[in-house]
């Protein structure tokens, strides 16, 4: 907790506690510093991606270079555009995986929140222990088992293991409990609606904001995943972005010319997600990510 001790000096600046409109300088500076720290690698990669191969090692790193378009063209030409293939694969894994995982979480979370049934807490508890399992522990036997049914190095080998998200089920349960009033469910039942119809037509629309959160959470988790594809895949036509850039960097230690491709590729890889976050944060609350529900 060494860093926590930084604060004590900070709010001492305000001498008059009853003047809430004045700007507290030190705390504002601290926040600014934190924001700058988070920007450092991003600014660096933007600058580095503009440098032509020789400029990377010869010019000051934070000065812009002249080679951005050449770099993108080089990346585009590298092994017939395999980079874009990785990008498409990542979008496929993350998009399909998050959608299906969200559906599984919604069904499970709804059942756990709305029904009372034997074994409810036991099932929930067992599903949650999945959070504690280190992914390597699961991934190695998963690989061996999938090899038995000839599914390794297949798109499914990266998709299937991520469909169950314990955290997604936990969040779905909280959202369903907060968003789906029991009397509404009961009223629908009185009107003669079947259980599935109640879920589809009544509960699902109410849970939608929460489900968007689960989708995004899983999307980011799968987009960022490295270990599972690292273990499962060997054909680089099926690689997601993370694994593709890693192998490129790995080859780069022998031929530094590839470093430029790695750097340009990294920049282009973070653009979509950063853009997505800037876009959605206007009409979606980050608070939902930690399971907060408006009361």
């Amino acid at each position: 907790m060494t860093t926590a001790r930084v604060t004590p000096q900070a709010p001492q600046a305000p001498p008059a506690p009853r003047a809430p409109r004045r700007v507290a300088l030190l705390p504002t500076a601290a926040l600014l510093l934190g924001a700058l720290y988070c920007l450092v690698p991003v600014v660096w990669v933007v600058m580095a991606a503009t440098k032509a191969g020789d400029e990377l090692f010869s010019t000051f790193t934070l000065a812009p270079g002249t080679g951005l378009l050449t770099n993108i063209a080089d990346l585009n030409a590298y092994r017939d555009g395999v980079y874009w293939r990785w990008m498409a694969n990542s979008a496929l894994y993350a998009g399909v995986g998050a959608a299906l995982s969200c559906a599984v979480s919604a069904l499970g979370g709804y059942a756990l929140a709305v029904y009372r049934f034997a074994g409810r807490e036991a099932i929930f508890g067992v599903l949650l222990t999945g959070v504690l399992m280190p992914p390597v522990i699961l991934a190695v036997p998963q690989y061996l088992l999938l090899a038995e049914v000839d599914l390794t190095d297949h798109y499914l080998s990266v998709l299937l293991p991520v469909l169950l998200s314990p955290y997604g089920i936990y969040l779905a349960r909280i959202y369903a409990a907060a968003a789906v009033p029991s009397d509404v469910v009961e009223a629908a039942r009185m009107d003669g609606a079947g259980e599935w119809r109640i879920f589809r037509a009544v509960a699902l629309p109410m849970m939608l904001p929460g489900l968007v959160t689960i989708f995004l959470f899983q999307f980011v988790a799968i987009w960022n995943n490295f270990l599972l594809p690292f273990i499962m895949l060997s054909d680089d036509e099926k690689f997601p972005m993370t694994l593709g850039l890693y192998t490129l960097l790995n080859q780069g230690s022998n031929s530094p010319a590839l470093y430029t491709l790695v750097i340009t590729g990294s920049l282009l890889a973070i653009v979509p997600l950063v853009a997505l976050f800037l876009l959605i944060q206007r009409f979606w609350s980050l608070d939902l990510l930690s399971g907060a529900v408006k009361s």
Binding site: P14, T28, L31, L32, C38, V220, L243, I270, L276, F277
Partner: peptide
Amino acid sequence: ERVRGRRAGRLLIFLPYAIPGVI
């Protein structure tokens, strides 16, 4: 409440979450 730039600060500090660990 007397700290300026809280919205921007929150977004920027959260930004690395969107960047894969490998990258």
